[in-house]
Design a protein around this nucleic acid. Structure first.
Lengths: 209, 209, 209, 209
DNA sequence: CATGAATGAGAGTTCATTCAT
DNA sequence: AATGAATGAACTCTCATTCAT
């Protein structure tokens, strides 16, 4: 009859759940993530997830919002140190790359959210996504005004950068495998800094006149 | 008591399942796709799916292989008409774009497969993915040999192209929404041809000396 | 790995579920009845309940409709033999009494359905309840026309009959207890026929002029 | 971190819980009533319910006893004003009707308690129920002794009165619906006073010689 | 007296999979 | 080749109850 009741404070538990949820959702996707598994990972009772986040979907939204906020904050903070559009662009790319390395599975999660939802994507989520893009497109705009960037379609350029970085990060394992087994040139040995430097260089070249 | 037994030949049913499976898997992802729903969509009994494809995972692999084959075939066929690396590159981009439009949800599916599996990715699937990439990297290689392309890291460039195209396609709905609601510059009105033309132009610029 | 699969035909299983559900729902009420328990009682897998009835609520509605139909059919069949309103009234009371004995816990179930639902009561259910009442009120109406019944408010009389019968039946156990322990006059020894005869007699007296 | 601790005295909180519990249990039944919901309704912590009433079942019993007491007290108090059995009977019916209107969902709750429990019905509850019935059967007994009532089976008559009143009250909503939609004669417009007057009149007629 | 975090058991429901026909 | 009944495991979610504070 005697039950051992763990005593942690609310914030600790709530955060523990969120952090592990970020990992699981981004590794396995929404449907394949089980609340049972998450609870075990947190060493917490399953019911606590619902106590704090109401529902699986609720937790999921909290996860996405949290992640978007983190990216945005990281990127803006870094960018404050630079004032020339070219440096800001450099910094944006490097910071995003660092972030994507930290949560390597999130991009596909966000991507899915962007694609199937369309209309149902909750407002908060949508709002945070736009803020992130606005940051980037502002850099380009200022660059064009100052005459250092030409012929920009910010949306496409944004996706060229994010797309390539995400793919390079998530495919790391398999690219190594392809290299080891068949000496295929998959850029297996490059680290993320080299990759983002290369992308930076190429993007700047694209935008020159 | 009398049961109506549909009579189709095996190939027809098997294909019917595969086609509908492509749609469902790519729309909803692996876990969120139910065999029940698929069977209903095919107007076939659930058990038939297992009769033909052994298991859900088996069907899923068949789906991915089928899709990769289709992309590869389409791209190679188109590219036979061109012989200068620049034209081949152009053609590669345009053909991939067309394909991605046809199955707009597949990229995220492939992407996930690339990321979580790593080592467990079945050989056949892996093989088909490599063939596709080889096609692209060969174009670049020939271009470098002929001196028309400079400073290439094919893997990164491959992902810049695929990444941006995929993202532009899958986010179409939401970009329109963002434009309509807040006049955000999300390239909402561009059609896929304009987008791939822009990407082509920019990639070529990157590779010039 | 080898699974033993029971082979019964659909109708048998579906009925088995319905019959046991009638018993459980009427004994315990909706919320307190568990699908797990029902399945065990049927010696069937829990999933079969959902296979046949979609949801607990769906099963519940099937139960109620089934029961109402049975009452209605029993009552109409019996009443065909009589043509004078007084005899029809007698027969109505006796038949309802017999039925209520067979499913002693149903009345409280129907009662609850009548009370909390109001607007949400499904159409089919509502329809069957009205048919039942119409049967009774028609007897009274004919009686008034022929001059053998006076001063009727059919709804109240209907509930006097049903209410007293239901209560006498459901409280049987406890009335016996009260009698044995304290010689309280709870009509403990009366059987249902005596009770319905008494009710019949009294109702007829009420309706005389 | 600072926690706001409500300060009420014990009796106030305990009563608050009881009152709201009466409402919820009688509206939804035992199983469908959740302690969480009750706590929210009381603007109190869930644990307080257990602090005061030990368990859900304990609270439930408190509820039933409280209600039975209230009925009994109301009825006896009213009946003190009358001394002829006929007037006492009238008064009993009218008072019960008033009470049932105040807690329209209680009857079905009591009914259920009467039926499932049988042997397990706690002593206190049983005791209170009997007191209530004794009140009624005493009126009839005195009436028979004085020669103004004939041929009484008090238990059945008790249930005729209670049954019809309860049913008329709980089905009010649905009877109105049936009337509005299909002009069915469901006594939709009668108020409780007319109904109890009609019942009174009819009961008295039954008991005449 | 009062709170909120924590628990374990069980609820309804879904789903991939199998088997007899 | 095709069906539909059957299964068992898993899933999300709820609930009464308890404990530390």
């Amino acid at each position: 009859m005697s039950r051992v009741v763990k005593k942690r404070n609310a914030q600790v538990s709530k955060n523990l759940i969120l952090l592990n949820a970020i990992e699981l959702f981004s590794k396995k996707g929404y449907s394949a993530t089980s609340m049972e598994e998450l609870a075990t990972k947190c060493d917490l009772n399953k019911a606590m997830i619902f106590y704090y986040y109401k529902s699986k979907r609720g937790l999921y939204e909290a996860v996405i919002i949290q992640v978007l906020k983190e990216i945005y904050d990281t990127v803006t903070k870094e960018n404050k140190n630079y004032h020339k559009p070219i440096d800001e662009l450099d910094s944006f790319i490097k910071t995003y790359a660092k972030f994507a390395c930290k949560f390597p599975h999130l991009p596909s999660l966000l991507l899915k959210e962007l694609s199937d939802s369309g209309a149902t994507l909750p407002e908060k989520l949508f709002y945070n996504m736009k803020k992130m893009y606005a940051l980037f497109s502002d850099i380009l705009k200022r660059g064009e005004e100052k005459g250092c960037f030409k012929d920009t379609i910010p949306m496409v350029l944004y996706f060229m950068i994010l797309g390539s970085l995400n793919l390079m990060i998530t495919t790391k394992k398999i690219r190594i495998k392809a290299y080891e087994e068949e000496k295929l040139d998959t850029c297996a040995t490059c680290d993320i800094d080299e990759i983002s430097a290369y992308i930076s260089k190429k993007v700047k070249k694209m935008l020159k006149d």
